[in-house]
Design a protein around this nucleic acid. Structure first.
Lengths: 338, 338
DNA sequence: TTGAAAGCGCTAACAG
DNA sequence: CTGTTAGCGCTTTCAA
């Protein structure tokens, strides 16, 4: 029992000589209340320091007041969220939802198949779910969407999605990055770092290949597959091996800023200077990308706008609407690393 | 209305021929139910895919099932959380609370005075609040704690606190960092980066001064005050000025890894090599500190353990107990930057 | 424009 | 060990 919510609607009702119903109506802005009583009630509420019990309200309204966020990518990794990109997008989501008087639930729910997901606590404790990344769960997500439960997904839209997809044009992002390396940085031996088993990296890889093709460098590419939500030391080791093996690589497109930061670090450890010996481009444009040295050249993702879009999509679905996707252009931000 | 919770306790009761009460008892593990009926009920629940409506349960129990996290440091800054340290500690809190079937609310509530805070949505929507950082709100926090509302604070314990404080020995951390710079790195011109208007940086600064004193270098220190939750570009500018002004500084103690990363970046931009020309030590040991180059030497904060302590303290208070603080030793992690 | 009454799904006396 | 009953704080028909 929260002993700090001393006053409830009944007390306001008693004070003002009206019924609970009227207090309820007045406080939730119903037009069915006369100005006079409404002001009376609102004043009384202020004076007593009344704060509505939102749990009771949501309960009565048959909703939870919660939107869950699920990180699809953490499939077999025991790790929690350690990619700043996740954190930034979650922060944006939380901030937007807070403005709409919703809570954000950071869920740790695996998505295997739609029906078992629908029976999860995450679903029963929320009014909708935002997935960050499609993982390899495209089918399950489609099924889930068709069940009618509101979801929105941060991901790539090249698949045939029944669910709301929000993100950027990943193919274009990969293309712009590789093209920049080739044309502006005059690089010839490019590499791609990311796990192309997932839709977004895959699309970026495709764009990367397109740029290579266009430049007649299609055979020189050397992709290294790394899991995005990786363990720092594992990634370091893989990257060190990479640099000792691929000695002539002079340009790298990374699938996240975190990977780019690790790649720069590994390159420097291997005695290479960035961007002199090797140019590195990230993806996401997390706020940290400006803080490190060299400042990261990167493909910006519309984090804040995307977070808002996904939330709005959920709300639209809760109102029975059927909203569109929101795929923005990729934008190359040129700084110092490439 | 969540159309996906089709089955409720009454249905399980009907199926098994018992009353709602018995179902409730069985499902919440009450010992007052016979094994036979308990198993019967649990099986029926499984078969129907029943998921308890936690909102209703919490409502009935007079609790919210939510613990709020408030970032005390964001006093006048319009920014949201962009320090990975915050994100990591929040992630740990969220993970621990999830295991206890609690939700984490990332609140954006200012703490001005205790009584107005007690009337906030944040309080009414949660069973307890965790504050990250004391800010300049020590008095208000004491008042709040004395009101009986459960709170726990990540901060420094040198003040006289009526609230649960969790963190590390900040003075010792500052001391260890400065001592390392002096003794191991043979540095003589040290600087301290952080905003000493706040209790934690202040304690660290004190330890830093203690080490200088001990080494007979007390007059050479040159503190630069920076707000921890800073805007990247502002911080960059301040740091660049710093390095052009303080040309002989050869060792820096930073109040966070983020500041250290920015400092290294600025140093490099100013043509200085880290750690050859200037040694830099961070504070926090965020996971990113291993990913950058040079890998960050830093004072580790017990992030996971501290998160757990704060949650446990809240739960203890909810059970009427009066728990102790949890202040751990500071631990210097020596890597490459110093 | 307002009030009376019912009830969201669950738990907890109390009585058996 | 189990059932009956009341009710958490709020909203919303329905009637006035």
């Amino acid at each position: 029992m929260n002993k700090f919510e001393t006053v409830d609607m009944q007390q306001i009702a008693d004070m003002t000589g009206v019924s609970r119903s009227t207090v309820s109506r007045a406080l939730s802005g119903s037009p069915l209340v006369s100005f006079k009583t409404r002001d009376l009630i609102i004043n009384a509420a202020k004076q007593t320091g009344y704060v509505m019990n939102t749990a009771a309200r949501n309960f009565r309204l048959g909703r939870t007041g919660v939107i869950a966020v699920v990180l699809t990518l953490e499939h077999d990794s025991p790790q929690t969220i350690n990619d700043p990109f996740f954190m930034e997008i979650i922060a944006e989501i939380a901030e937007y939802l807070r403005q709409r008087n919703y809570n954000t639930l950071i869920a740790h729910e695996r998505l295997d198949d739609a029906s078992s997901f629908l029976q999860s606590q995450t679903v029963s404790a929320s009014d909708g779910v935002i997935f960050i990344g499609q993982g390899k769960k495209h089918e399950a997500l489609n099924e889930l969407a068709n069940s009618g439960f509101p979801i929105a997904v941060w991901g790539d839209a090249t698949l045939d999605c029944d669910y709301t997809v929000v993100g950027c044009d990943n193919r274009q992002g990969g293309y712009l990055a590789a093209k920049h390396l080739i044309e502006q940085c005059h690089r010839k031996h490019l590499a791609f770092l990311g796990d192309t088993h997932f839709p977004e990296p895959q699309a970026r890889f495709k764009g990367y290949l397109d740029a290579l093709q266009e430049a007649g460098l299609a055979e020189t590419n050397s992709p290294l597959h790394i899991n995005i939500s990786f363990d720092p030391s594992t990634a370091q080791k893989a990257l060190e091996e990479f640099f000792t093996r691929e000695t002539e690589v002079d340009g790298i497109v990374c699938c996240s800023d975190l990977i780019a930061i690790a790649a720069i670090s590994a390159a420097q450890r291997a005695g290479k200077s960035v961007p002199n010996d090797v140019s590195v481009i990230g993806f996401d444009n997390i706020s940290l990308s400006q803080l490190i040295s060299p400042q990261l050249t990167t493909v910006a993702q519309p984090i804040a706008a995307g977070a808002k879009s996904m939330c709005e999509s959920i709300f639209a679905q809760l109102s029975g609407e059927r909203p569109r996707d929101d795929i923005s252009q990729a934008q190359l931000i040129i700084r110092d690393s490439a």
